[in-house]
Write a protein that binds this DNA or RNA. Sequence first.
DNA 1: TTGTATGCGTTATCAA
DNA 2: TTGATAACGCATACAA
Lengths: 344, 344
Amino acid sequence: MDAFAKPKLDDVAREAGVSTATVSRCLNEPGKVTAATRDRVMRAVEALGYTPNFGGKALASQKTSTVGAVLPTLDNAIFARGLQSFQETLSAAGVTLLVASSGYDADREDEQIRALIGRGADGILLIGTARRPAAYEFLKRARTPYVIAWSIGEAGETSVGFDNVGAAREMARRVIAEGHRRIAMISGITHMNDRAAGRVEGVCQALREAGIETADLVVDEVRYAFDEAGEALERLMSRNDPPTAIICGNDVLGVGAIARAKQLGLVVPSDLSITGFDDIDIASIVEPGLTTVHVPHRRMGTAAAETLLALIDGRPVSETVLLETTICDRGSLGPAPAGNRPRP
Amino acid sequence: MDAFAKPKLDDVAREAGVSTATVSRCLNEPGKVTAATRDRVMRAVEALGYTPNFGGKALASQKTSTVGAVLPTLDNAIFARGLQSFQETLSAAGVTLLVASSGYDADREDEQIRALIGRGADGILLIGTARRPAAYEFLKRARTPYVIAWSIGEAGETSVGFDNVGAAREMARRVIAEGHRRIAMISGITHMNDRAAGRVEGVCQALREAGIETADLVVDEVRYAFDEAGEALERLMSRNDPPTAIICGNDVLGVGAIARAKQLGLVVPSDLSITGFDDIDIASIVEPGLTTVHVPHRRMGTAAAETLLALIDGRPVSETVLLETTICDRGSLGPAPAGNRPRP
DNA sequence: TTGTATGCGTTATCAA
DNA sequence: TTGATAACGCATACAA
């Protein structure tokens, strides 16, 4: 054997004086081999530093022990915690996670899904429901099971998530209950993003319930970044009728909004109330703490992994796992200022 | 063809009335095929929703167009931005990124490296230099090129990073120049983490330069989390001789420390100065802004990707790409309080 | 319990 | 320009 080539099953077999089949069995079904030969084989594996070739293995066994996840972004903490527990659960089951990010772009998501299928991912984790039909066709065609997280999917789809609309509605009710009437939103881009869109919808529902004209609700859509939220806040506050409360589509936006509000000399919440959504770490770091919707990220990640693994093994799963969200009060939401409007 | 099976090259070939070789060429070297047949083949590909099988492809071509990255964590933003640009650069080159996280655990990192090699990663990105020899042996044995980022590696290793020691030293000099003498550190765990260790070392160097007894430097090592930093801060401030300045090993710790200091009623920086390292987004969100070491994350990610791609293609690379860091003044570092010690 | 032989889906070599 | 066919490394049905 060429000392400079990557060792193959064949090399191990020769070194141990057995057949390739035996080596393969040692590695995959150790029980079907006597302790003596297993010892010899393992020693050879060790000596040669053998690592199975993934391509060969995948080709022969028609499975990869791999699942993929396509996330909108890795750039902020929104998906980090959930992904971490997702991966921990998979890892415990001996399954490797492939992570891809789409940059909130439907085309790129299609590509990534195809790539993962091509790589033989046994299953795929997707975030939210909004994507083009083609993506679902690939999945169906390839018979690749998938789980939708962060949202509840339609009938026939397996999902592990929470009620984005309902949670946002509940938050908006709280805001209204504090006496706010001029309410604005800083939202993530809602196009092809059902979570962002659902949160806007939830707020609208609460406004209607309260008899507030939803046509008056100003929604400023921005990308998920502190600065973007800050600029949205400036735009909102420089209007003729600035809001007394701003409901943000997630915590990154909420924190960015609080920071900018303070820079503008506004006191949160006495001049202006601000709320978030997600409950990521920074929500409790800013001052005042961000009142936000707590999402059980870790439980969601774990449940998503368990569901996907079950789906892959053909075990029965409940179609939807609906997780509870709660509102976490930290101080950035307060009563509407009496009478006079806050001005920057 | 079974309408319910994943289409293979063979199915496409039949559909288009050509050989599998032609289909393969169409997909990989379109120039070597006439426009007419290419059209026919592409139509068939589209109609069948064909996706190449990764295993087969990897096996036959002996390459995967895949690189792996083993990060210490995905749970905070420290590596997010660098990883994002790393992946963008790869993606532009048609290379897929596999992300694995080790949880700052050397054993797990070994595992992950093996797994990536086994999956045929053409190259691997590693963070920092501290790991056990076995990891390097796997890499050598498998002839898998790798690039070290976030640090500068030893001679013979390719790395794209910055001078952790020098940058921390410079920051400590600034702190000393502000008149601080009782200085403490909140550091990440330094065991098997050369970045964290280097930053402590840099601070020690600056103290020695200034004739300050380094034995007096209290270093509180904690995991990378806001809360952990907060508790470390409490421990430090409840000592008999509380520091007037705390140098934090990274921004997560710095921000956590600022938040807790404020909760304790300390005014930053007049009672207590706090500095960070990394310059991630939240550094400019807290109040006061965190004075920190700016690390060019995006450039580092891009350069790491370019270097790794070059290595994979056998193109020449410069062994080390040393990026400049700068100190970013945001207000959390101020002059040492005159005389009286800050007390919580 | 172990070995032999075949096939997995693709690329690449060589002829046509 | 295209087609036939032999690898590629491994798992597995079947034989011993």
